[in-house]
């Protein structure tokens, strides 16, 4: 499946492959030795893919687009929200990521993908309150149509995608979780996002570019 992720497929082919994958998983004939390789987000961007520009409303009332970050080296996209205990456990670490990497050209862009009808805590008004209380130094955007989360193949919060900018193109370099200990920042041994960004800053390959975590499933709007 890593092969699949690395293979450049045009969007319809990717969609088809994803559907085939889902159908295969649904067939209930998986071997006991789970040989099937991981595919966290069958329909979203893969490593190396160029990302489409997006424009979302920020808690300060202004609209922020990815293209606004054309002077930096990339961006750290963090799908997060107010209500999720995992997002809250990582909140200070997300703030620290921005403090550390914004000045080096990798600012954090927070995006809340949840349907506020499902979680009142995730409403735009409550996003403003949270950003003010915690003094967010980065944009905290509302993905009201959830199109951005879908494009990135996000399924849960928190979920991080590190992008590298070349010209006006942003490409996916890392997707997954922030580090290897959601419960206790003091006991972390692997800082996946930091390592990825540091490697990019050093002009080196990212290394481990996809990780998994338990998180809060994104609540999708019912169509």
């Amino acid at each position: 499946m890593l092969l699949f992720m690395k293979t450049k497929l045009n969007p319809p082919a990717r969609l088809l492959a994803g559907l085939v994958m889902l159908l295969t998983l649904g067939a209930g004939q998986q071997p006991v030795q789970n040989a099937a390789a991981p595919l966290a987000n069958p329909l979203g961007y893969g490593i190396g893919d160029a990302v489409a520009n997006f424009r979302l409303k920020n808690v300060d009332g202004r609209t922020v687009s990815l293209a606004d970050f054309k002077d930096g080296k990339g961006a750290i996209i963090v799908f997060t929200c107010n209500h999720c205990p995992f997002s809250r456990a990582y909140e200070d670490r997300v703030i620290a990521l921005n403090q550390r990497f914004m000045s080096q050209g990798f600012p954090v862009i927070g995006i809340n993908p949840n349907d506020p009808a499902a979680y009142e805590e995730d409403s735009f008004e409550n996003m403003k309150v949270r950003a003010r209380e915690k003094g967010y130094s980065f944009p905290y955007l509302a993905d009201e149509t959830q199109e951005v989360a879908r494009a990135f193949g996000a399924t849960r919060t928190p979920y991080v995608v590190v992008l590298k900018r070349e010209g006006d193109k942003f490409t996916v370099q890392y997707m997954g979780t922030i580090d290897d200990n959601s419960q206790d920042a003091g006991s972390v041994t692997h800082r996946y996002v930091e390592d990825a960004v540091n490697n990019l800053l050093a002009g080196k390959p990212v290394g481990l570019n996809t990780t998994k975590s338990v998180g809060c499933a994104i609540k999708w709007k019912t169509v």
Partner: peptide, 29 residues
């Protein structure tokens, strides 16, 4: 706490979102 390792150990097709249900019968493979 190391979910990245844990989730694949439980099932490689799992992305980690909850709930997830895993049904196993070894004799029926």
């Amino acid at each position: 706490t190391d979910h990245n390792t844990l989730i694949d150990q439980i099932d490689r097709s799992w992305s980690g979102s909850l709930p997830a249900t895993l049904i196993i019968n070894h004799q029926k493979n």
